[in-house]
Nucleic acid binder design. Structure first.
Lengths: 243, 243
DNA sequence: GCTCATTTGTTCGTATGTATC
DNA sequence: TGATACATACGAACAAATGAG
Protein backbone atom coordinates (compact mmCIF):
# COMPACT_ATOMS: atom_id res chain seq x y z
CA UNK A 1 0.00 0.00 0.00
CA UNK A 2 1.13 3.50 -0.73
CA UNK A 3 2.06 5.65 2.20
CA UNK A 4 -0.70 8.02 3.15
CA UNK A 5 0.08 11.51 1.97
CA UNK A 6 3.71 11.64 2.99
CA UNK A 7 5.96 12.49 0.08
CA UNK A 8 8.97 13.41 2.22
CA UNK A 9 9.96 16.85 0.94
CA UNK A 10 13.71 17.40 0.96
CA UNK A 11 15.08 20.10 3.24
CA UNK A 12 16.77 21.97 0.39
CA UNK A 13 13.47 22.10 -1.46
CA UNK A 14 11.54 23.49 1.49
CA UNK A 15 14.20 26.16 1.97
CA UNK A 16 14.21 26.99 -1.72
CA UNK A 17 10.45 27.37 -1.67
CA UNK A 18 10.32 29.65 1.36
CA UNK A 19 13.03 31.88 -0.11
CA UNK A 20 11.17 32.09 -3.41
CA UNK A 21 7.98 32.99 -1.57
CA UNK A 22 9.80 35.73 0.29
CA UNK A 23 11.11 37.11 -2.97
CA UNK A 24 7.65 37.05 -4.50
CA UNK A 25 6.20 38.75 -1.44
CA UNK A 26 8.70 41.54 -1.99
CA UNK A 27 10.72 40.94 1.18
CA UNK A 28 13.79 41.87 -0.87
CA UNK A 29 13.72 43.92 -4.07
CA UNK A 30 15.69 43.04 -7.23
CA UNK A 31 19.35 43.89 -6.62
CA UNK A 32 19.15 43.55 -2.85
CA UNK A 33 21.06 40.86 -1.00
CA UNK A 34 19.53 38.01 0.94
CA UNK A 35 21.04 36.51 4.11
CA UNK A 36 24.36 34.68 3.92
CA UNK A 37 24.71 30.92 3.58
CA UNK A 38 25.78 30.66 7.17
CA UNK A 39 22.84 32.55 8.61
CA UNK A 40 20.36 30.68 6.44
CA UNK A 41 21.93 27.43 7.63
CA UNK A 42 21.65 28.41 11.28
CA UNK A 43 18.14 29.84 11.01
CA UNK A 44 16.84 26.74 9.28
CA UNK A 45 18.94 24.22 11.20
CA UNK A 46 20.46 22.67 8.10
CA UNK A 47 24.02 22.35 6.85
CA UNK A 48 25.79 24.82 4.60
CA UNK A 49 25.75 22.27 1.77
CA UNK A 50 21.98 22.08 1.90
CA UNK A 51 21.69 25.87 1.77
CA UNK A 52 24.07 25.93 -1.18
CA UNK A 53 21.92 23.45 -3.05
CA UNK A 54 18.77 25.48 -2.48
CA UNK A 55 20.43 28.72 -3.54
CA UNK A 56 22.07 27.23 -6.63
CA UNK A 57 18.71 25.90 -7.76
CA UNK A 58 17.22 29.37 -7.48
CA UNK A 59 20.21 30.73 -9.39
CA UNK A 60 19.59 28.24 -12.21
CA UNK A 61 15.94 29.19 -12.23
CA UNK A 62 16.91 32.83 -12.63
CA UNK A 63 15.63 34.21 -9.32
CA UNK A 64 19.02 34.84 -7.71
CA UNK A 65 22.59 35.58 -8.64
CA UNK A 66 25.69 35.23 -6.49
CA UNK A 67 28.98 37.10 -6.39
CA UNK A 68 31.95 35.53 -4.68
CA UNK A 69 33.03 37.61 -1.73
CA UNK A 70 29.92 39.80 -1.80
CA UNK A 71 26.77 37.80 -1.36
CA UNK A 72 23.59 36.45 -2.88
CA UNK A 73 21.23 38.89 -4.63
CA UNK A 74 17.71 38.94 -5.99
CA UNK A 75 17.79 38.92 -9.80
CA UNK A 76 15.57 41.21 -11.81
CA UNK A 77 14.12 40.72 -15.26
CA UNK A 78 15.85 37.68 -16.65
CA UNK A 79 15.36 38.20 -20.34
CA UNK A 80 16.43 41.73 -21.10
CA UNK A 81 20.08 40.79 -21.29
CA UNK A 82 19.64 40.20 -24.96
CA UNK A 83 16.30 38.64 -25.41
CA UNK A 84 13.84 41.46 -25.39
CA UNK A 85 15.14 44.98 -25.18
CA UNK A 86 12.64 46.50 -27.57
CA UNK A 87 12.66 44.41 -30.71
CA UNK A 88 15.45 42.55 -32.40
CA UNK A 89 15.31 43.41 -36.09
CA UNK A 90 17.62 41.68 -38.59
CA UNK A 91 17.81 41.72 -42.37
CA UNK A 92 18.81 38.07 -42.39
CA UNK A 93 20.43 35.43 -40.20
CA UNK A 94 23.86 36.63 -39.14
CA UNK A 95 23.04 40.29 -39.68
CA UNK A 96 23.64 42.69 -36.83
CA UNK A 97 20.67 44.17 -35.03
CA UNK A 98 19.03 47.40 -36.11
CA UNK A 99 19.22 50.26 -33.64
CA UNK A 100 15.83 51.61 -32.59
CA UNK A 101 14.68 54.91 -31.16
CA UNK A 102 11.50 55.13 -29.14
CA UNK A 103 8.88 57.84 -29.23
CA UNK A 104 6.08 57.97 -26.68
CA UNK A 105 3.00 59.09 -28.56
CA UNK A 106 0.40 58.89 -25.84
CA UNK A 107 -0.16 57.68 -22.28
CA UNK A 108 -3.54 57.96 -20.65
CA UNK A 109 -6.01 56.22 -18.39
CA UNK A 110 -8.92 54.50 -20.10
CA UNK A 111 -11.84 52.33 -18.97
CA UNK A 112 -11.20 48.61 -18.91
CA UNK A 113 -12.33 46.50 -21.86
CA UNK A 114 -12.33 42.95 -23.09
CA UNK A 115 -10.21 41.10 -23.90
CA UNK A 116 -7.48 43.28 -22.39
CA UNK A 117 -8.73 42.98 -18.82
CA UNK A 118 -9.08 39.24 -19.16
CA UNK A 119 -5.52 38.96 -20.46
CA UNK A 120 -4.39 41.06 -17.50
CA UNK A 121 -6.30 38.88 -15.06
CA UNK A 122 -8.39 41.73 -13.63
CA UNK A 123 -12.14 42.44 -13.48
CA UNK A 124 -13.67 44.20 -16.46
CA UNK A 125 -14.52 47.26 -14.38
CA UNK A 126 -10.93 48.19 -13.54
CA UNK A 127 -9.25 51.02 -15.39
CA UNK A 128 -6.18 50.65 -17.61
CA UNK A 129 -3.27 52.67 -18.82
CA UNK A 130 -3.06 52.83 -22.59
CA UNK A 131 0.39 53.60 -23.97
CA UNK A 132 1.13 54.16 -27.64
CA UNK A 133 4.70 54.12 -28.87
CA UNK A 134 6.56 54.13 -32.15
CA UNK A 135 9.98 52.58 -32.70
CA UNK A 136 12.08 54.16 -35.42
CA UNK A 137 15.13 53.08 -37.34
CA UNK A 138 16.98 55.86 -39.16
CA UNK A 139 13.97 58.07 -38.58
CA UNK A 140 11.53 55.73 -40.33
CA UNK A 141 8.83 54.10 -38.20
CA UNK A 142 9.14 50.30 -38.13
CA UNK A 143 7.10 49.24 -35.11
CA UNK A 144 3.91 50.71 -33.67
CA UNK A 145 2.70 49.37 -30.38
CA UNK A 146 -0.11 49.81 -27.93
CA UNK A 147 0.32 48.59 -24.39
CA UNK A 148 -2.29 48.13 -21.69
CA UNK A 149 -1.37 48.00 -18.01
CA UNK A 150 -3.59 47.71 -14.90
CA UNK A 151 -4.12 51.22 -13.48
CA UNK A 152 -4.30 49.82 -9.99
CA UNK A 153 -0.82 48.29 -10.15
CA UNK A 154 1.01 51.25 -11.63
CA UNK A 155 -0.33 54.35 -9.94
CA UNK A 156 1.64 57.47 -10.81
CA UNK A 157 2.79 56.20 -14.19
CA UNK A 158 1.50 59.28 -15.99
CA UNK A 159 3.47 61.44 -13.59
CA UNK A 160 6.84 60.12 -14.72
CA UNK A 161 8.87 62.31 -17.09
CA UNK A 162 8.10 61.53 -20.72
CA UNK A 163 11.71 61.11 -21.76
CA UNK A 164 12.13 58.32 -19.20
CA UNK A 165 9.90 56.17 -21.39
CA UNK A 166 12.15 56.91 -24.34
CA UNK A 167 15.42 56.24 -22.55
CA UNK A 168 14.83 52.88 -20.87
CA UNK A 169 12.79 49.83 -21.78
CA UNK A 170 9.37 49.44 -20.27
CA UNK A 171 10.74 46.35 -18.48
CA UNK A 172 13.39 48.37 -16.67
CA UNK A 173 11.01 51.16 -15.84
CA UNK A 174 8.51 48.80 -14.28
CA UNK A 175 11.13 46.86 -12.37
CA UNK A 176 12.89 49.94 -11.02
CA UNK A 177 9.79 51.95 -10.17
CA UNK A 178 7.37 49.25 -9.12
CA UNK A 179 9.55 46.26 -8.21
CA UNK A 180 8.01 43.82 -10.70
CA UNK A 181 10.62 42.01 -12.77
CA UNK A 182 9.59 40.33 -16.00
CA UNK A 183 9.79 36.56 -15.73
CA UNK A 184 8.41 35.42 -19.09
CA UNK A 185 6.32 36.48 -22.07
CA UNK A 186 3.67 34.91 -24.25
CA UNK A 187 3.40 36.01 -27.85
CA UNK A 188 0.98 35.41 -30.71
CA UNK A 189 2.11 36.15 -34.26
CA UNK A 190 0.00 36.72 -37.32
CA UNK A 191 -0.09 38.75 -40.50
CA UNK A 192 -2.79 41.31 -41.20
CA UNK A 193 -3.52 44.17 -43.56
CA UNK A 194 -2.73 47.56 -42.07
CA UNK A 195 -5.81 49.49 -40.96
CA UNK A 196 -6.09 53.26 -40.91
CA UNK A 197 -4.45 53.88 -37.53
CA UNK A 198 -1.60 51.46 -38.14
CA UNK A 199 -0.97 52.68 -41.68
CA UNK A 200 -0.78 56.25 -40.45
CA UNK A 201 1.56 55.45 -37.58
CA UNK A 202 3.90 53.41 -39.76
CA UNK A 203 3.58 55.78 -42.73
CA UNK A 204 2.60 53.04 -45.12
CA UNK A 205 -0.36 52.37 -47.41
CA UNK A 206 -3.56 51.09 -45.88
CA UNK A 207 -3.85 47.40 -46.70
CA UNK A 208 -0.13 46.66 -46.67
CA UNK A 209 0.73 43.37 -44.97
CA UNK A 210 2.08 43.96 -41.47
CA UNK A 211 3.35 41.59 -38.82
CA UNK A 212 1.01 41.67 -35.83
CA UNK A 213 2.27 40.51 -32.43
CA UNK A 214 0.12 40.23 -29.33
CA UNK A 215 2.04 39.88 -26.10
CA UNK A 216 1.36 39.14 -22.44
CA UNK A 217 4.18 39.90 -20.00
CA UNK A 218 4.29 38.07 -16.67
CA UNK A 219 5.93 38.85 -13.36
CA UNK A 220 6.09 36.76 -10.17
CA UNK A 221 3.44 34.12 -9.53
CA UNK A 222 2.52 34.00 -13.21
CA UNK A 223 0.76 37.34 -12.84
CA UNK A 224 0.31 39.17 -16.15
CA UNK A 225 1.06 42.88 -15.93
CA UNK A 226 1.03 44.02 -19.54
CA UNK A 227 -0.95 43.26 -22.66
CA UNK A 228 0.55 44.66 -25.82
CA UNK A 229 -0.25 44.77 -29.49
CA UNK A 230 2.58 45.49 -31.89
CA UNK A 231 2.48 46.15 -35.61
CA UNK A 232 5.70 45.81 -37.58
CA UNK A 233 6.38 46.91 -41.09
CA UNK A 234 10.06 46.38 -41.25
CA UNK A 235 10.79 46.76 -44.94
CA UNK A 236 13.61 44.28 -45.50
CA UNK A 237 13.97 43.65 -41.78
CA UNK A 238 12.47 40.81 -39.76
CA UNK A 239 11.69 40.15 -36.12
CA UNK A 240 14.19 37.77 -34.54
CA UNK A 241 13.50 35.13 -31.89
CA UNK A 242 15.74 32.49 -30.38
CA UNK A 243 14.45 29.40 -28.58
CA UNK B 1 51.14 40.49 -9.02
CA UNK B 2 48.73 38.34 -10.95
CA UNK B 3 49.75 34.78 -11.66
CA UNK B 4 50.92 34.35 -15.21
CA UNK B 5 48.13 32.98 -17.37
CA UNK B 6 46.84 30.46 -14.89
CA UNK B 7 43.13 30.82 -14.25
CA UNK B 8 42.99 27.61 -12.25
CA UNK B 9 40.24 25.60 -13.93
CA UNK B 10 38.15 23.68 -11.38
CA UNK B 11 38.19 19.89 -11.55
CA UNK B 12 34.40 19.68 -11.92
CA UNK B 13 34.58 22.04 -14.89
CA UNK B 14 37.26 20.05 -16.69
CA UNK B 15 35.25 16.87 -16.19
CA UNK B 16 32.07 18.56 -17.37
CA UNK B 17 33.84 19.75 -20.51
CA UNK B 18 35.32 16.41 -21.43
CA UNK B 19 31.97 14.69 -20.97
CA UNK B 20 30.28 17.30 -23.17
CA UNK B 21 32.94 16.84 -25.83
CA UNK B 22 32.38 13.09 -25.76
CA UNK B 23 28.65 13.62 -26.20
CA UNK B 24 29.25 15.95 -29.13
CA UNK B 25 31.66 13.51 -30.71
CA UNK B 26 28.89 10.93 -30.60
CA UNK B 27 30.54 8.62 -28.07
CA UNK B 28 27.05 8.02 -26.67
CA UNK B 29 23.82 8.59 -28.57
CA UNK B 30 20.74 10.33 -27.13
CA UNK B 31 19.06 7.94 -24.72
CA UNK B 32 22.18 5.94 -23.97
CA UNK B 33 23.69 5.88 -20.49
CA UNK B 34 27.09 7.26 -19.56
CA UNK B 35 29.35 5.73 -16.86
CA UNK B 36 28.25 5.80 -13.23
CA UNK B 37 29.31 8.43 -10.73
CA UNK B 38 31.64 5.99 -9.08
CA UNK B 39 33.46 4.98 -12.24
CA UNK B 40 33.78 8.59 -13.41
CA UNK B 41 35.19 9.47 -10.00
CA UNK B 42 37.75 6.68 -10.13
CA UNK B 43 38.73 7.24 -13.76
CA UNK B 44 39.27 10.94 -13.19
CA UNK B 45 40.71 10.66 -9.69
CA UNK B 46 38.19 13.02 -8.14
CA UNK B 47 35.58 12.58 -5.43
CA UNK B 48 31.98 11.58 -5.97
CA UNK B 49 30.87 15.07 -4.97
CA UNK B 50 32.91 16.61 -7.74
CA UNK B 51 31.44 14.21 -10.30
CA UNK B 52 27.96 15.02 -9.01
CA UNK B 53 28.57 18.74 -9.53
CA UNK B 54 29.80 18.25 -13.09
CA UNK B 55 26.85 16.02 -13.99
CA UNK B 56 24.25 18.27 -12.39
CA UNK B 57 25.60 21.21 -14.38
CA UNK B 58 25.19 19.26 -17.61
CA UNK B 59 21.68 18.30 -16.50
CA UNK B 60 20.82 21.97 -15.97
CA UNK B 61 22.26 22.79 -19.37
CA UNK B 62 20.03 20.16 -20.91
CA UNK B 63 22.65 17.71 -22.14
CA UNK B 64 21.95 14.94 -19.63
CA UNK B 65 19.14 13.58 -17.51
CA UNK B 66 19.38 11.27 -14.54
CA UNK B 67 17.06 8.62 -13.13
CA UNK B 68 17.49 7.45 -9.60
CA UNK B 69 18.37 3.77 -9.49
CA UNK B 70 19.06 3.59 -13.23
CA UNK B 71 21.78 5.95 -14.30
CA UNK B 72 22.72 9.07 -16.22
CA UNK B 73 21.62 9.41 -19.84
CA UNK B 74 22.31 11.61 -22.83
CA UNK B 75 19.35 13.91 -23.45
CA UNK B 76 17.99 14.43 -26.92
CA UNK B 77 16.21 17.41 -28.39
CA UNK B 78 15.41 19.66 -25.47
CA UNK B 79 12.62 21.74 -26.91
CA UNK B 80 10.14 19.35 -28.33
CA UNK B 81 8.52 18.63 -25.00
CA UNK B 82 6.11 21.44 -25.65
CA UNK B 83 8.08 24.09 -27.40
CA UNK B 84 8.21 23.07 -30.99
CA UNK B 85 6.37 20.00 -32.05
CA UNK B 86 5.18 21.35 -35.37
CA UNK B 87 3.52 24.69 -34.71
CA UNK B 88 1.54 25.91 -31.76
CA UNK B 89 -1.57 27.57 -33.09
CA UNK B 90 -3.97 29.38 -30.75
CA UNK B 91 -7.01 31.53 -31.36
CA UNK B 92 -6.10 33.73 -28.38
CA UNK B 93 -4.18 33.59 -25.10
CA UNK B 94 -5.50 30.80 -22.96
CA UNK B 95 -6.95 28.90 -25.90
CA UNK B 96 -5.98 25.26 -26.33
CA UNK B 97 -3.72 24.31 -29.18
CA UNK B 98 -5.00 23.36 -32.58
CA UNK B 99 -4.28 19.79 -33.71
CA UNK B 100 -2.33 19.56 -36.94
CA UNK B 101 -1.94 16.86 -39.55
CA UNK B 102 1.11 16.73 -41.76
CA UNK B 103 1.28 15.91 -45.44
CA UNK B 104 4.59 15.39 -47.20
CA UNK B 105 4.22 16.94 -50.64
CA UNK B 106 7.69 16.46 -52.01
CA UNK B 107 11.19 15.39 -51.02
CA UNK B 108 14.04 15.54 -53.49
CA UNK B 109 17.70 16.36 -53.93
CA UNK B 110 18.49 19.73 -55.51
CA UNK B 111 21.66 21.70 -56.22
CA UNK B 112 22.85 24.00 -53.47
CA UNK B 113 21.94 27.67 -53.67
CA UNK B 114 22.37 30.88 -51.75
CA UNK B 115 21.41 31.87 -49.15
CA UNK B 116 20.39 28.34 -48.07
CA UNK B 117 23.89 26.88 -48.17
CA UNK B 118 25.27 29.84 -46.26
CA UNK B 119 22.60 29.43 -43.57
CA UNK B 120 23.52 25.73 -43.39
CA UNK B 121 27.21 26.52 -43.08
CA UNK B 122 28.22 24.50 -46.16
CA UNK B 123 29.91 25.40 -49.47
CA UNK B 124 27.67 26.56 -52.29
CA UNK B 125 28.53 23.52 -54.39
CA UNK B 126 27.03 20.95 -51.99
CA UNK B 127 23.65 19.44 -52.76
CA UNK B 128 20.56 19.82 -50.58
CA UNK B 129 17.38 18.01 -49.75
CA UNK B 130 14.30 20.09 -50.41
CA UNK B 131 11.23 19.04 -48.48
CA UNK B 132 7.79 20.56 -48.92
CA UNK B 133 5.09 19.93 -46.38
CA UNK B 134 1.62 21.16 -45.57
CA UNK B 135 0.11 21.23 -42.09
CA UNK B 136 -3.67 20.95 -41.94
CA UNK B 137 -6.24 21.67 -39.29
CA UNK B 138 -9.65 20.10 -39.87
CA UNK B 139 -8.58 19.39 -43.41
CA UNK B 140 -7.81 23.01 -44.23
CA UNK B 141 -4.18 23.94 -44.95
CA UNK B 142 -2.78 26.41 -42.42
CA UNK B 143 0.98 26.14 -42.78
CA UNK B 144 3.10 25.49 -45.85
CA UNK B 145 6.75 24.92 -45.35
CA UNK B 146 9.87 24.25 -47.35
CA UNK B 147 12.89 22.79 -45.59
CA UNK B 148 16.44 22.51 -46.83
CA UNK B 149 18.92 20.04 -45.33
CA UNK B 150 22.51 19.23 -46.28
CA UNK B 151 22.50 16.15 -48.52
CA UNK B 152 25.86 15.07 -47.15
CA UNK B 153 24.60 14.87 -43.57
CA UNK B 154 21.37 12.99 -44.20
CA UNK B 155 22.12 10.35 -46.80
CA UNK B 156 19.27 7.94 -47.31
CA UNK B 157 16.58 10.40 -46.30
CA UNK B 158 14.60 9.85 -49.51
CA UNK B 159 14.65 6.12 -48.84
CA UNK B 160 12.64 6.41 -45.61
CA UNK B 161 8.94 5.54 -45.81
CA UNK B 162 6.81 8.56 -46.63
CA UNK B 163 4.38 8.06 -43.77
CA UNK B 164 7.25 8.30 -41.28
CA UNK B 165 7.50 11.99 -42.13
CA UNK B 166 3.81 12.36 -41.41
CA UNK B 167 3.85 10.47 -38.12
CA UNK B 168 6.74 12.03 -36.22
CA UNK B 169 8.23 15.50 -36.15
CA UNK B 170 11.28 16.20 -38.28
CA UNK B 171 13.18 16.72 -35.01
CA UNK B 172 12.47 13.20 -33.83
CA UNK B 173 13.20 11.68 -37.20
CA UNK B 174 16.58 13.36 -37.41
CA UNK B 175 17.50 12.54 -33.84
CA UNK B 176 16.46 8.91 -34.06
CA UNK B 177 17.88 8.20 -37.52
CA UNK B 178 20.97 10.38 -37.58
CA UNK B 179 21.76 11.08 -33.92
CA UNK B 180 21.55 14.86 -34.13
CA UNK B 181 19.38 16.37 -31.40
CA UNK B 182 18.04 19.88 -31.82
CA UNK B 183 19.63 22.26 -29.34
CA UNK B 184 18.14 25.61 -30.37
CA UNK B 185 16.46 27.47 -33.20
CA UNK B 186 16.69 30.92 -34.73
CA UNK B 187 13.61 32.43 -36.30
CA UNK B 188 12.82 35.51 -38.37
CA UNK B 189 9.21 36.69 -38.61
CA UNK B 190 7.67 38.97 -41.18
CA UNK B 191 4.46 39.51 -43.08
CA UNK B 192 4.26 39.20 -46.85
CA UNK B 193 1.67 38.90 -49.58
CA UNK B 194 1.09 35.34 -50.72
CA UNK B 195 2.74 34.56 -54.07
CA UNK B 196 1.42 31.99 -56.53
CA UNK B 197 3.00 28.89 -55.00
CA UNK B 198 2.06 29.82 -51.44
CA UNK B 199 -1.46 30.86 -52.36
CA UNK B 200 -2.01 27.56 -54.13
CA UNK B 201 -0.62 25.47 -51.28
CA UNK B 202 -2.68 27.29 -48.67
CA UNK B 203 -5.76 27.54 -50.90
CA UNK B 204 -6.04 31.28 -50.46
CA UNK B 205 -6.10 34.28 -52.78
CA UNK B 206 -2.84 35.50 -54.22
CA UNK B 207 -1.85 38.67 -52.38
CA UNK B 208 -3.40 37.72 -49.05
CA UNK B 209 -1.20 38.66 -46.08
CA UNK B 210 0.61 35.61 -44.71
CA UNK B 211 2.95 35.15 -41.80
CA UNK B 212 6.40 34.22 -43.09
CA UNK B 213 8.87 32.49 -40.76
CA UNK B 214 12.43 31.67 -41.66
CA UNK B 215 14.13 29.22 -39.33
CA UNK B 216 17.59 27.79 -38.72
CA UNK B 217 17.80 24.69 -36.52
CA UNK B 218 21.03 23.92 -34.71
CA UNK B 219 22.48 20.75 -33.26
CA UNK B 220 25.70 20.21 -31.26
CA UNK B 221 28.55 22.71 -31.60
CA UNK B 222 26.20 25.34 -32.95
CA UNK B 223 26.02 23.49 -36.24
CA UNK B 224 22.97 24.40 -38.36
CA UNK B 225 21.33 21.37 -39.94
CA UNK B 226 18.09 22.77 -41.36
CA UNK B 227 16.95 25.95 -43.04
CA UNK B 228 13.20 26.31 -43.32
CA UNK B 229 10.72 28.75 -44.71
CA UNK B 230 7.18 28.60 -43.41
CA UNK B 231 4.09 30.38 -44.59
CA UNK B 232 1.11 30.56 -42.27
CA UNK B 233 -2.40 31.62 -43.09
CA UNK B 234 -4.15 30.64 -39.95
CA UNK B 235 -7.51 32.33 -40.31
CA UNK B 236 -8.36 33.28 -36.76
CA UNK B 237 -5.41 31.34 -35.36
CA UNK B 238 -2.01 32.69 -34.45
CA UNK B 239 1.47 31.27 -33.93
CA UNK B 240 2.38 31.02 -30.26
CA UNK B 241 5.81 31.52 -28.71
CA UNK B 242 6.92 31.58 -25.09
CA UNK B 243 10.16 33.14 -23.91
C1' DG C 1 5.97 -10.66 -3.11
C1' DC C 2 10.64 -10.56 -1.56
C1' DT C 3 15.60 -9.84 -1.51
C1' DC C 4 19.71 -7.98 -3.22
C1' DA C 5 23.04 -5.39 -5.89
C1' DT C 6 23.33 -1.15 -8.33
C1' DT C 7 22.71 3.68 -8.97
C1' DT C 8 21.28 8.08 -8.01
C1' DG C 9 19.36 11.48 -4.31
C1' DT C 10 19.87 13.82 0.16
C1' DT C 11 22.34 15.48 4.07
C1' DC C 12 25.97 16.15 6.90
C1' DG C 13 30.59 18.14 8.10
C1' DT C 14 35.28 19.81 7.25
C1' DA C 15 39.09 22.04 5.06
C1' DT C 16 40.93 25.19 1.95
C1' DG C 17 40.90 28.62 -1.91
C1' DT C 18 39.55 33.12 -3.68
C1' DA C 19 37.09 37.49 -4.30
C1' DT C 20 35.40 41.77 -1.95
C1' DC C 21 35.77 45.63 0.82
C1' DT D 1 45.69 43.28 6.58
C1' DG D 2 41.74 41.20 8.26
C1' DA D 3 36.97 39.97 8.23
C1' DT D 4 33.36 38.31 5.42
C1' DA D 5 31.20 35.54 1.92
C1' DC D 6 31.04 32.53 -1.71
C1' DA D 7 33.61 28.49 -4.42
C1' DT D 8 35.85 24.18 -4.60
C1' DA D 9 36.84 19.64 -3.02
C1' DC D 10 36.67 15.64 -0.22
C1' DG D 11 34.24 11.84 1.77
C1' DA D 12 30.89 9.50 4.65
C1' DA D 13 26.31 7.79 5.76
C1' DC D 14 21.82 6.80 4.67
C1' DA D 15 17.48 7.07 1.70
C1' DA D 16 14.98 5.81 -2.36
C1' DA D 17 14.27 3.98 -6.93
C1' DT D 18 15.32 0.30 -10.30
C1' DG D 19 15.68 -4.13 -12.13
C1' DA D 20 17.05 -8.89 -11.88
C1' DG D 21 16.54 -13.17 -9.73
Amino acid sequence: MKKNCSPPIPAYYRLQTTILEDIEKGRWKPGESIPTERSLAELNRVSIGTVKKALLNLVHEGYLYRVQGKGTFVAGTTLWKESLRYYRLLKSFGDCETELNVELLELKVIPGFMPANRYLGIPEGQKLYEMKRVFRSDGRPVVYNISYLPHKLFKGLTGLPKNLFEKVTLYELIEKNYGYPTIYNHELFDAIEAGREVAKALEILKGSPVLHIEMQSFTYKDKPYEYRQSYCFCGNRKVFRET
